[in-house]
């Protein structure tokens, strides 16, 4: 069964895009996973797209007349000529990597214009879910990289997902993003009662292990999680310069030779724990 997971946190820069792309690579190409993974870039900043493809390929994407995530959200918008532009979901999917034994990474890319969609949010929240339903059989895992601000896109992500994965940096302001997020999930539950989303867990990202402030933030989050019955991942992701460097090169952590094996291994341990949580 396909599992769809949104990486969400209303706090910016906590590692949503970094984890999305590294998880995609992990399950497509690391060890013997060979999973079919789809990454959905749901952020007008299009960081996940930038990470997964380079400038030339991205240029082709926005010029090839095939839909991106923007067109998916605008398919019911009337053009000046009075037409609506129904899209074929499969056409929005671009191939990023084909790995041996059937593993692959595909991408529904984003573009800056997606931010324009937010100006007219009416009735758009179901469009992503509808699109994904039509193509999900081609995948084992679908990862949605969300934008850091709450909008119709967040609702769309909730509606399309089985699970929410929440990266948190163990820093004071970043941890306050957590109750904000849970609040947003509650609001969602009230409005869309029929739809069930599960908090897959909270993962600490960019942990340095040496500041007392960091320890304090971490402990606070753990206590909060325990009190509310939220799962937090026992495997944390350490701070490593290899993450930004990998992004620049378009490579996952396990392929960056300068990542000390230990760091790549720690990510792999987290990914395995994640797999157990979502049942893949």
């Amino acid at each position: 069964m396909t599992q769809t997971i949104s990486l969400i946190n209303m706090k910016g820069g906590v590692g949503k895009s970094t984890l999305t792309v590294n998880l995609a690579w992990h399950f497509a190409a690391y060890s013997n996973w060979s999973k079919r993974v789809l990454v959905v870039d749901l952020d007008p900043q299009f960081n996940a797209s930038q990470y997964l493809v380079g400038v030339h390929k991205y240029m082709n994407i926005i010029n090839d007349n095939r839909p991106t995530i923007w067109e998916i959200f605008e398919q019911h918008t009337r053009t000046p000529a009075g037409k609506t532009q129904k899209i074929t979901p499969a056409e929005s999917v671009r191939s990023v990597a084909r790995v041996r034994h059937g593993g692959k990474i595909d991408l529904i890319p984003s573009r800056l214009e997606l931010s324009l969609s937010l100006r007219n949010p009416g009735q758009k929240e179901y469009l992503l879910q509808k699109t994904i339903t039509k193509i999900k059989d081609n995948y084992d895992l679908i990862l949605i990289d969300c934008a850091p601000t709450e909008s119709v896109l967040t609702t769309a992500a909730y509606l399309a997902s089985d699970f929410i994965l929440v990266p948190v940096k163990p820093e004071y302001l970043s941890t306050i993003g957590l109750p904000l997020l849970v609040n947003s999930m509650r609001d969602f539950h009230e409005q869309y009662e029929e739809h069930n989303i599960n908090l897959c867990g909270i993962v600490f990202n960019a942990v340095t292990y040496y500041s007392p402030e960091e320890m304090k933030s971490k402990n606070e989050v753990i206590t909060l999680s325990k009190n509310n019955g939220w799962y937090y991942f026992r495997n944390e992701i350490p701070y490593s310069r290899s993450y930004p460097k990998g992004a620049r090169e378009g490579q996952p952590i396990f392929r960056t030779s300068y990542a000390r094996t230990e760091q790549a291994l720690k990510f792999a341990l987290f990914a395995e724990e994640f797999a157990g949580r979502i049942g893949i």
């Binding site: 926005i62 010029n63 090839d64 007349n65 067109e71 053009t79 000046p80 532009q85 214009e113 324009l116």
Partner: peptide, 8 residues
């Protein structure tokens, strides 16, 4: 402010 499906 382009409409969908128009390209660069």
């Amino acid at each position: 402010d382009k409409m969908p499906n128009q390209t660069l």
